[in-house]
Design a binder for these strands. Structure first.
Lengths: 339, 339
DNA sequence: TACGGTGGTCGAAACGTTTCGCAAACCTAG
DNA sequence: CTAGGTTTGCGAAACGTTTCGACCACCGTA
């Protein structure tokens, strides 16, 4: 491997001058600089990141700390990662994938103690997540994709559930629906404090209230079977529901089956929307479902970018909310006339 | 940050002794060793990976080099990454996510030139992939998830398409089908030399021949629309086809729609299988489709493990093939009686 | 002519490890 | 009691950077 010293020798200058010339750290005479740059190119010089990091205390490596893939861990989460990696790469940073094992805090302590990473990117945030507290206390720069209940001045990029819910409600209200139901994630141990679970529920309720349309959301479903059952219960209690938004793809499958069993059709008898699901998934249904697609890659990019901004210097906290994109499918239509 | 020197001071020994004691590099008296370990614990010492790497030339960091997400980049690819990250983590390694930009080779040159990574993990291999050649010449250790046309002695973990195809053919043949059709990925610029595209096609043909059942595979489809059209053409040319295996999820959507348009039902009139698709995706269809689920996480794990083996010492090349798992759904049944 | 200023360069120290030659202390055997 | 070997520990060098004080030659000015 060719080092700074090799370049210095070839250019007939001191090592420190080469460093200065290549990094623009301090002024170097134009002629010297040219000579050095030429030598560097000739030798195919690449700075050694380890040595640089050791000295400068900055490695330009970010850790993306991701929890063990739950069921349902899918394209969205992948896109956080690829989005973040891309943004990091564009800004000269690298992204380290760091799986959390049984004990997230211990794992964080480990990864940050190695001196390997400049900062940490957190995802899959729970409202009561303990990781931010640990990192704050440890003085490790970090940002979140998602957010805790009270993010304070921590940088984060999250879905704008309020805007998303408003858009969804406007969509169905615009079609003439007067009553909307919402199926949240099933109450698993995890989902109980999972940000999107809580926020989506709250914001759909608020948006419906605001728009003056009736709303039901006491149903939760995580599998096709549960989705079907929840739908039956829903109709038993609220026969006047004509539009339904579902957070869980598999629950939606069950709903569709239940709709068919009943002899109903989508969208004639029910307008169905997929919440937090990608267009690609929505397209796999028949008819193609209307979806509220989360801006996953964008959130990953934002998260990485704001973390890097933070590393580069202080600034006001960056807190960005990005709404989902509503992709209208063939599952949206005005309600049945007779209702 | 507490360093080796701090520990040395507290334990009243030389720095080099601490290093030896903690790494087991050379024998250290039991009493001394205990004292040192205690001091290390007291101080919460964590070795600095940069310094270690700088000196020892081994960083314990692997780069996972992934191409720009194509359309269809999904759960499978995510699982390569998480599987690899997990396996690496278990073995004391870290995984760097390295997006390839426009020029993969240049990107490889860059990432390997930094002295940051010990080896590279390649995925999304094309038959004529140039990356292995570059890495071989550069003397960078690497392994592949997937494989080129002629992998030589390079370590890889890939899907066992032969076994997978045999199992799929046996599945339909066992149900009594005498003629199987196969829809491959659409002929995109990428898929043209994409390993799975080619190998799956070849092996399905071979397996059908071997099992003595008729076979058609000149159809390719990448979207729902194309899938439907391909299905119509298929039936026009081969009305006696009763079983169909489809590689592309979206094409399957089109097929199902076409089946319904024709008044047919699945599985009564057509046995349908999803090739290289996860159980979760198969469950989103109605009826639940039979799927050949790729061992994605396993391949990621294997890829990482064999790369680490290689780094640890020489051994014979490791080349592992893992078959897909056949998950029987409700889309498989004996053929119509009248055929 | 002398003097402070300045643009350009150098050399050495430091970052936190690992590695390796050496020396001190100890033990064993003759 | 000493020669030889073994155990145990030490100190210094090295890895490839960045950083920083010092130096030198040169310039304009008094």
């Amino acid at each position: 491997m060719t080092s700074l010293r090799d370049v210095a020798e070839r250019a007939q200058v001191a090592v420190s001058t080469v460093s200065a010339a290549l990094n623009g750290t301090r002024p170097v005479a134009a002629a010297t600089k040219r000579r050095i740059e030429q030598a560097a190119v000739d030798l195919g010089y690449r700075p050694n990141l380890l040595a640089r990091g050791l000295q400068s205390k900055r490695t330009k490596i970010l850790a993306l700390f991701y929890p063990a893939p739950r069921s349902g861990f899918g394209v969205t989460e992948m896109q956080f990662a690829t989005g973040a990696a891309e943004a990091a790469s564009e800004l000269g940073y690298h992204l380290l994938l760091s799986p959390d094992s049984a004990d997230p805090i211990e794992e964080l302590r480990h990864i940050t103690g190695l001196g390997l990473v400049d900062g940490v990117l957190l995802m899959e945030m729970r409202l009561d997540d303990e990781r931010p507290d640990f990192l704050s206390e440890a003085g490790v720069p970090f940002s979140m994709i998602g957010r805790t209940r009270d993010p304070g001045t921590i940088d984060y990029a999250d879905i704008d559930f309020a805007a998303t819910a408003r858009e969804a409600v406007a969509h169905v209200a615009g079609l003439g629906h007067r009553k909307l139901a919402f199926f949240n994630y099933s109450t698993g141990t995890y989902a109980a404090q999972y940000g999107p679970t809580i926020r989506a529920g709250e914001e759909f309720a608020a948006a419906a209230r605001e728009a003056g349309i009736a709303y039901v959301d006491d149903h939760r479903a995580g599998s096709a079977e549960e989705g079907g059952e929840a739908f039956e219960r829903l109709l038993a209690a609220h026969p006047d529901v004509t539009a339904l938004a579902v957070m869980d793809d598999h629950a939606a499958v069950g709903v569709i089956a239940a709709v068919a069993r009943r002899g109903w059709r989508i969208p004639d008898d029910l307008t169905l929307m997929l919440v937090l699901s990608s267009e690609r998934v929505a397209e796999m249904f028949h008819p193609r479902l209307t979806a509220l697609e989360p801006p996953s890659a964008e959130l990953g990019r934002l998260g990485a970018r704001m973390l890097i901004d933070r590393l580069r210097g202080d600034g006001p906290p960056q807190q960005r909310l990005v709404p989902c994109r509503l992709v209208a499918g063939d599952s949206s239509a005005p309600p049945r006339a007779e209702v």
